[in-house]
Design a protein around this nucleic acid. Sequence first.
DNA 1: CAATAGGTGGGGGAAAGTGGGGAATTTTGC
DNA 2: GCAAAATTCCCCACTTTCCCCCACCTATTG
Lengths: 146, 146
Amino acid sequence: MLAGEYSHNIDPKGRLTIPSKFRKVLGTEFMVTKGLDKCLSIYPESEWKRMEEKLREMSLTTNQVARKFIRFMLGSAVEGGLDKQGRILLPQPLKAYAGLDKEVVLVGVMDRIEVWDKDKWEQNQAHDEPNIELLASEMEEMGLSI
Amino acid sequence: MLAGEYSHNIDPKGRLTIPSKFRKVLGTEFMVTKGLDKCLSIYPESEWKRMEEKLREMSLTTNQVARKFIRFMLGSAVEGGLDKQGRILLPQPLKAYAGLDKEVVLVGVMDRIEVWDKDKWEQNQAHDEPNIELLASEMEEMGLSI
DNA sequence: CAATAGGTGGGGGAAAGTGGGGAATTTTGC
DNA sequence: GCAAAATTCCCCACTTTCCCCCACCTATTG
């Protein structure tokens, strides 16, 4: 399972080191794509397959919302490769979407890695953490006991 | 079951000794994550599995509340490894969240361990203990009789 | 009071992250 | 079609962080 938060830098050549803890889970085959809330998502091959399946089911319903969502997810997807130092090269459009510059935060979220611009991540944190007890109680209503 | 309260120090290298009483219950596999009320929570593997399952179900619904909460819980979580001295290394983001510096208090709470900044813990105690009878009666109103 | 167990601290080797030179490949422009 | 430019990726070097090991200190126990 992917978890944890790591601050890394995109170097002048546009390369980003994947934390070694994550590399062990990711393997060599993975997908980089636009994520929700203006971050990037990196899915291990297996998880990606699972999602593709889901999206495939949805597309059968051929409603416009699903079509748009699928375009969003798949349109931006790129197969990732690691260099021998464990780094990926981020395509310009993806960097632009997530507003990535130099300092980024890599966050393990269960089945994927999210890549955030550091400032944006910290702003979100600052915004959400004061309300986390409220969030927690909503989660409890949804059936989670902590 | 985890119970009791221990004062320990985080050493200059950021390491925290887990009380040996707790180690016996924790085993070698556990998760450290942000808890409510600005403390850290350490869950034994079994407890964590239970929560993970719940979170995974919810993540499918992809509603924003769940997404934020999962980021909160997992984003910062780390798999615990104890060194040969029975210590964990606390990542900076977790220390920052709980305001941990040097003196901390480890509290056994049923199925998890909470880690508090010592000052904060004592303040909370000082604040809550005089009112504990009131708290108890509030609990009773909620249907929780002891 | 010795002996043991638990907690604290630091040295040092190994691993991870960072950055840059430069070769190989692809893309671009004439 | 070919040279120039850009891109990608391998390699090496440096720095930082992690984690093993050992040593010491303190409290508890026989």
